[in-house]
């Protein structure tokens, strides 16, 4: 067996175990950390496909930023696991149907080559091929309008999220740093001249 195949199976095995633990872990913080592990191993799998930009971007964006905020929120939630499990069996039929549908769709995508409806060519690139450069060229030339559109949609979503949660409390003592810096000693301090008092003779 080739070394690359061994690496693939190691990453794939860890990822599957981590993914199963995400949904079976009782503690939500543990579940999030297993999700992080799954992402990290997915990045490793992409590296074996020579897609170094996607792999590192996955680790940087999802593991390094998104999941940190996820963890941040999950740690602060007061989660009662027992209450969450109520009604598990009544929701089961709907959830199972959805799960089977999704699994079926994924199976169709993966087996499309077998059924002959699409063909993936496992093309190997020369050593000086830069995945990053190629992706950048495609994003900013051929697909520049969809790319810009996606970023504008994201920007709108960010502004909407900020607007929904932004509340100016009136009782907050807000300080303007520019004003703080511009303060002069004469604004705050008044030196009073007091005539020296004479000591009374006893």
């Amino acid at each position: 067996m080739e070394l690359k195949t061994v690496i693939f199976y190691v990453f794939a095995l860890i990822m599957l175990v981590a993914a199963v633990r995400v949904i079976t872990a009782r503690n939500p913080v543990h579940a999030v950390l297993f999700l992080v592990l799954a992402f990290f191993n997915a990045g490793g799998l992409w590296l074996t496909l020579d897609a170094e930009f996607l792999a590192i971007a996955l680790v940087m964006v999802y593991v390094g930023a998104v999941m940190v905020l996820f963890l941040f929120v999950v740690m602060m939630l007061d989660i009662d696991a027992k209450r969450l499990r109520q009604g598990f069996w009544s929701h089961m039929p709907l959830a199972a149907t959805l799960g089977v549908l999704m699994a079926g769709e994924m199976a169709l995508v993966l087996s499309s080559e077998y059924f002959g409806s699409a063909s993936f060519s496992g093309q190997t690139m020369p050593a000086d091929y830069s995945n990053t450069k190629e992706l950048g060229r495609l994003l900013f030339t051929d697909y520049v309008y969809p790319f810009e559109l996606a970023s504008i949609i994201l920007l709108v979503a960010i502004i909407a999220a900020v607007m929904l949660t932004l509340r100016h409390r009136r009782d907050v003592k807000h300080l303007d740093p520019a004003k703080q810096i511009a303060v002069k000693h004469t604004d705050r301090l008044r030196v009073i001249q007091m005539p020296a008092e004479k000591e009374e003779a006893e």
Binding site: E52, F53, I56, V59, M60, T132
Partner: peptide, 21 residues
């Protein structure tokens, strides 16, 4: 490696997990 800067950013961004956990 060719994507050295990305690797650097990605791995350093993992350091925060130690502190949070």
């Amino acid at each position: 490696v060719n994507a050295g800067v990305l690797f650097l950013l990605a791995i350093t961004s993992l350091g925060v997990y130690g502190i949070i956990i």
